[in-house]
């Protein structure tokens, strides 16, 4: 069965976040478009900036940071 991986480039981050109904606030943090006071969170409850944005999982509710520590943890989950 054909199985593909979808990724996005760094320059497409804002558009991808828009797809997911998210926006960027003045501090560069990812927030809900409909409720900008609600910040997007990682699985361990951290806020996440657009620079740190590495991806999403689980129905776009859990954000993944792109740093070594976050990805080391993620690599052990799978």
């Amino acid at each position: 069965m054909e199985k593909a991986v979808i990724t996005f480039s760094n320059d497409a981050k804002k558009e991808i976040l828009d797809f997911l109904d998210k926006d960027i606030n003045r501090e560069g943090l990812i927030v809900e478009k409909q409720n900008p006071t609600q910040k997007a969170l990682t699985s361990d409850g951290q806020e996440i900036s657009i620079d740190e944005f590495g991806g999403v999982k689980k129905g776009s509710e859990v954000f993944i940071k792109n740093d070594l520590i976050s990805l080391m943890r993620l690599s052990k989950e799978e």
Binding site: I6, F8, G54, G55, K57, N66, L68, L71
Partner: peptide, 11 residues
């Protein structure tokens, strides 16, 4: 599926 930035996927 996880939707990842391409360099994040590589790492």
């Amino acid at each position: 599926n996880k939707l990842l930035e391409e360099n994040t996927l590589k790492l």
